[in-house]
Computed example of a mutant assay.
Amino acid sequence: MTLLLSNEDAAEVLTMSNTLDALEELYRDLGTGSAVYRGRTDLFAPTVAEIGADIPAAHQFKTLDGAIPRLEVASIRVTSDVVAFPEVNGLRRRIKIPAATGKSYVGLVFLFSSATGELISIIQDGILQRFTVGAINAIGAKYLSRRDSSVVGLIGAGSQAGPQLAALKQVRPIRHVRVYSPTAGEADSFATKMSELLGIEVTVAESAEAAVTDVDIAVTATNSRVPFFPAAWLKPGMHLSCMQRDEPNSDCFKEADVVVFHTRMKEHEYVSTDFAETEKRFNFVMRDHPPRDLDWNDFPDLGELVAGKIKGRQNPQERTFFLNSTGVGAQFTALAHLIYNGSRKLGLGYEVPAEFFVESIQP
């Protein structure tokens, strides 16, 4: 039987603690080469969704995959998104449009058995994605930030910001957070919610720079497609944790004493010719991330850090920097396996006969 699992089912199983444990084991596997994944693939095509004549938009079809022999599973994550790139406060941002039935989104993880090749589960990816991104950056902080780090500066108060803090609190003794968001009222509601949820003091900063002044860990959790975090804000002893690669200025990569990427493997992007014409009209390259003048091979990755192949922080004064450069397919394999096993034990989900997903004709 193939088990269909919703975000609600995933939320019954996942905790930030078991997510961190599962992913730290995964990155040890990746660091030793016993787990494998491919670079992300993005297809961009025009969309007929009504976004607005003056806003660039696209249909972005994205896949990531990975296999973990230790768990005897492999997976592929598929997202089918309608995306737009509006300008907000002078900065270009990427937003997903809820264009599917009932104003919803489309994202699924397909989990396969390495023993039989069968599809054993299909899992909605929303909760899984939030947990995994928060946990990945926290693992970076565990190996790179000072052990006594207790004050966090957070830029961004959207859906990904909460998991960033929840995961950090698992690996460091966080007691105070300052949060900034350019969206009116967003930081205030976030501070109220997270103070109660995490049992720590969360206050609102008046600017991005004020949020990260004199903090131990600076976290960026935004959808900006224009870099905004300069190396001048990265002070001795601080750890910078960026949720995506468009947030830090280029000087951060040169000025930080230790820089670690999530992965050195870049995504592969393919664009239809008619969509390319749309890009010319807007004079804007509508990729998930605009190109940057960086050689990713110059930097170590998280697997090497967790496996002990490279050193992390060496002294309290070092300025460290972890960049969640792009996704790793195996991260979804690890959490899909965790959700699948937990759901089986709890009797969650909806079973579909496996015969729907196998065939007698050899392809």
Rank of each mutant, 00 (worst) to 15 (best):
T2M: 14
L5Y: 14
N18E: 12
T19S: 07
E25L: 09
R28P: 00
G33K: 05
A35Q: 12
V36G: 01
L43D: 10
F44K: 03
A45C: 12
P46W: 15
V48Q: 08
A53L: 13
P56D: 12
A58M: 11
K62H: 01
D65N: 10
D65P: 00
P69M: 06
R70N: 06
R70K: 09
L71P: 02
I76T: 15
V78R: 01
T79D: 15
V82A: 08
V83E: 12
F85S: 06
R93A: 10
R94Q: 13
R94H: 06
R94S: 04
P98G: 13
A100D: 14
G102P: 04
S104V: 00
Y105N: 08
G107R: 03
V109D: 08
S114F: 00
A115K: 14
T116Q: 02
S121Q: 07
S121N: 07
S121G: 14
S121M: 05
I123Q: 15
D125Y: 01
L128Q: 13
T132N: 13
N137W: 01
A141N: 10
Y143P: 05
S145D: 09
R146K: 09
R146N: 15
S150T: 08
L154V: 00
I155V: 15
G156A: 05
A157M: 09
S159P: 00
S159T: 09
G162N: 02
P163C: 11
L165C: 05
A166L: 05
A167R: 01
A167K: 02
R178F: 05
A184G: 03
G185R: 14
A187N: 13
K193W: 04
M194V: 02
M194R: 02
M194Y: 10
M194H: 03
S195A: 06
L198I: 02
I200Q: 08
S207C: 12
T213W: 06
D216C: 14
A218E: 09
A218M: 12
A221P: 01
S224N: 15
A232I: 00
A232D: 15
L240V: 10
Q244E: 14
N249M: 15
S250K: 11
A256M: 02
D257H: 10
H262Y: 09
M265R: 03
E269V: 15
S272W: 07
A276S: 13
E279G: 10
K280N: 05
K280A: 03
R281Q: 11
F282W: 09
N283S: 12
M286H: 07
R287G: 13
H289S: 08
D293M: 07
W296M: 07
D298F: 04
P300A: 15
D301R: 06
L302D: 05
A307F: 02
I310A: 06
R313K: 14
P316N: 07
T326K: 01
Q331I: 01
F332V: 00
N341Q: 12
K345W: 00
L346F: 05
G349A: 13
G349S: 10
P353G: 08
F356R: 03
P363I: 04
